[in-house]
Design a protein around this nucleic acid. Structure first.
Length: 383
DNA sequence: GATCCACGGGAATACACGGATG
DNA sequence: CATCCGTGTATTCCCGTGGATC
């Protein structure tokens, strides 16, 4: 979108009193093409993968830092730009025997929250590299690995970024080493929260620490808001959000998103401080990131949706809640119960002791409550 | 026929608590 | 008083089965 177009769009939006021009601009799970306030880190990352620019694969890299520090933002932006700049837009070469066709290094981003098995990682990588369809079932992991190996031969190597390692429910750095151990023409960037010293697996020498945001977060909110809103965000409100979020960009953006929803619903022409207030109240600090929740399987999200729809979800043991949800879905109570426990284990739900009357015998039941922004989930979880 | 993996259910383990035991 | 035991529930762990796909 060029400048004139942007201006025109704003004017027309303004005249319709639309505050929010582009919801994705505020979506914590969607990253900017051009990260803000992380120039030094990007430089460090480029340095680590420098051999690429001589058309050789770099060594593996480990990127780590706390939640909401912008790891995904940097890595996704880097990978998509590299794929755009250094890889052919479409493969136009024909493989002439003995010909010296110039191959290319390719770039793939994999979200370990979605690709939870070795099979899926191979599959996702393969799907990113080739245009023909990739089997989902009926073919073994070894077969898929062989197909990937064959596909790699048509490239000069692949740099694969695997995000969200070592989170509850995702594979770890150790698994990643193993998955690509037998590939010479693959280098990877592993991304996780765990400090290298706390990992038992061998960690690549190239390590990039992404620290929590401090002042930069104000700029990020400001830039995001300027893209997403037809009116600028007050500097004070941006500051208030970053302080409340203690530097966690996800939480700050999520709160801003909800604030925008409030303002939009009220047909306000700017985000008011009451909106920000309600935004912050709608986000559990340090809860599960919305991207985590959206990456859950269909049935896990069904369970969450039903849970949120339950008339009185504040009370009710897991057992009782599972029964109710089972009635409203085509899952068994037993399966719903298992899913609820699993969601609690990965931090999407919180388990809280239900204060129970004295008479009962046996272990005390607990109930679950969401540990993520339900407002955001309800808006972003389409289908 | 092979393969992956989501379901579903049951086995094993953890916990709560009153009462018995040392 | 500290520990163990029995009973009843909650929670975690595990694995066989079957659907969908190749």
């Amino acid at each position: 979108m060029d400048l004139a177009e942007r201006i025109a769009r704003r004017r027309s939006q303004r005249s319709e009193h639309r505050l929010v021009v582009d919801w994705d601009g505020l979506n914590p799970a969607v990253h900017l093409q051009e990260p803000v306030g992380r120039e030094a880190l990007i430089e460090a990352l480029l340095e680590a993968i420098d051999p690429l620019f001589d058309e050789t694969l770099p060594s593996n890299v480990y990127v780590w830092g706390p939640a909401g520090a912008g790891k995904s933002a940097i890595v996704t932006a880097l990978m998509s730009t590299l794929e755009g700049e250094l890889s052919p837009r479409q493969p136009i070469y024909t493989t002439t025997r003995g010909g010296s066709e110039r191959l290319e290094i390719r770039f793939v981003y994999v979200d370990a929250r979605r690709e939870t098995s070795r099979f899926r990682i191979y599959r996702q990588t393969l799907a990113a590299l080739r245009t023909e369809s990739v089997p989902r079932r009926g073919v073994g992991t070894d077969e898929l690995r062989a197909q990937l190996r064959a596909e790699l031969a048509t490239t000069d190597g692949v740099l694969i970024a695997v995000d969200h390692l070592d989170e509850p429910g995702t594979i770890g750095l150790e698994d990643l080493q193993d998955v690509f151990a037998s590939f010479d023409d693959v280098a990877w960037i592993g991304v996780g929260r765990t400090p290298p010293d706390d990992l038992s697996a061998p960690v690549p020498n190239a390590r990039i620490h992404v620290p929590r945001y401090s002042y930069e977060l104000v700029d990020i909110l400001t830039v995001r808001a300027s893209r997403a809103l037809s009116r600028n965000l007050d500097h004070d409100q941006a500051r208030r959000l970053t302080e409340w979020a203690e530097g966690n960009a996800h939480d700050a953006l999520a709160a801003l998103y909800v604030a925008a929803v409030e303002a939009d619903a009220a047909e306000a022409n700017r985000i008011r401080s009451g909106d920000v207030e309600r935004g912050t109240q709608a986000i559990p600090r340090g809860g599960a990131p919305i991207g985590r929740v959206l990456a859950l399987s269909e049935n896990e999200r069904v369970v969450l949706r039903e849970l949120l729809d339950l008339p009185a979800r504040e009370e009710g043991s897991i057992d009782a809640v599972a029964d109710e949800i089972a009635e409203r879905s085509d899952l068994t109570s037993s399966t719903v119960k298992r899913l609820l426990y699993e969601l609690a284990q990965i931090g999407v739900l919180d388990r809280v002791q239900v204060s129970v009357g004295s008479s009962v015998v046996g272990r005390n039941p607990s109930m679950v409550k969401p540990n993520f922004s339900t407002a955001l989930f309800e808006r972003l979880d389409d289908t």
